[in-house]
Simulated scan of single mutants.
Amino acid sequence: MKVQEILKENSIANRFISQLRDTNIQHDRMRFRRNIERLGEIMAYELSKELEYENKNVETPLGSVTVATPQDELVICSILRAGLPLHQGILNYFDDAENSFISAYRHHPDNDEKFEILVEYLASPSLEGKTLILADPMLATGRSFSNVLKALESMGNPAMIHLVSVIGSQEGVEYLKTVFPENSKLWIATIDKELDANGYIVPGLGDAGDLCFGNKLQH
């Protein structure tokens, strides 16, 4: 699996990440969701450079012109619920893509800090021969992405897999390299060095799902 870290080069993405991390700003849920959506748009643009293109003749009011247009059959799969704003950002650029939704969440069976990743819901078209884009803003341990990959096996074999995330841990990235196939690439805004004892990214930004949509009860 290849890795493309967007913030290795300075761009407007730095501002969006800064606001997502800032405790004085992130309480504004609308801005938080919009900043994740913007980063989805940025990474969709970068990802688009690696799609397959073919020339198409387009008629204008004054003549005709040949334009290279993408030919990949795309399926965007977001991991509920935090993945929804990121999904929307990607969909803003790939508006003719098919869409898939899957749940993957931290289940605390003993009501303590120990957790397992559960996948309980999946709605997806066929993935056979298509380009799959998996979207989840936080890449902590990497288990959510790997469990989702297993859950999607029955949907067919994609020709290419792109993972899109906002903030990840180095540990999680290294884990994904061991479980995702060679025909996959991770697009991520920035990678933090640490996970804490509870599996949260440090410095990270907190719980992206709660910051997007409000606090939830653990179950």
Rank of each mutant, 00 (worst) to 15 (best):
N14T: 03
D96E: 14
G129M: 04
A44P: 00
K114F: 08
K49H: 12
E182A: 15
R143W: 14
V119H: 09
Q170V: 02
D22G: 02
V119F: 11
S124P: 01
V202L: 09
L51N: 09
E5T: 06
L134K: 01
R81T: 06
K150P: 10
I36W: 00
H87S: 14
K56P: 07
D196Q: 10
T69E: 10
D72M: 03
T178D: 12
H162T: 07
V65T: 10
A97E: 06
L86D: 00
S48N: 03
P137K: 04
I201D: 00
N10R: 15
L139K: 07
K8E: 14
L84Y: 11
T190N: 11
Y53A: 03
G168A: 11
T131Q: 13
M155Q: 13
R33L: 08
D22L: 04
I201L: 00
G89W: 15
T23M: 10
D28T: 11
R143Q: 15
Q19T: 07
G214T: 02
Q170E: 08
N157S: 12
D95H: 13
A13R: 00
F213E: 01
D112Y: 12
I191Y: 04
S48R: 05
S169T: 08
D28A: 06
E128S: 05
D22V: 01
G89R: 13
G206W: 01
L152K: 04
R33V: 04
I102E: 10
G209C: 03
V119L: 11
Y93R: 06
I102V: 14
H162I: 06
L62C: 11
A140M: 05
N10Q: 13
E50Q: 12
I161S: 06
L132V: 09
R34G: 04
P61D: 06
H219L: 13
H107N: 15
K130Q: 01
A159C: 07
V75A: 10
L74D: 07
G204T: 03
I17S: 01
E182R: 14
I25F: 04
D72G: 01
Q170W: 04
M138L: 08
R31D: 10
P85V: 02
F180A: 02
L20Y: 07
E171V: 08
K185P: 15
I36E: 00
L86Q: 01
P203K: 00
K8H: 11
E9D: 08
V202K: 12
G168S: 07
I191E: 03
N215W: 10
F145P: 10
D96L: 13
D207G: 00
I42W: 02
P125A: 01
I167T: 05
I102N: 08
E41G: 10
S78K: 04
E52H: 14
G209Q: 05
E5S: 02
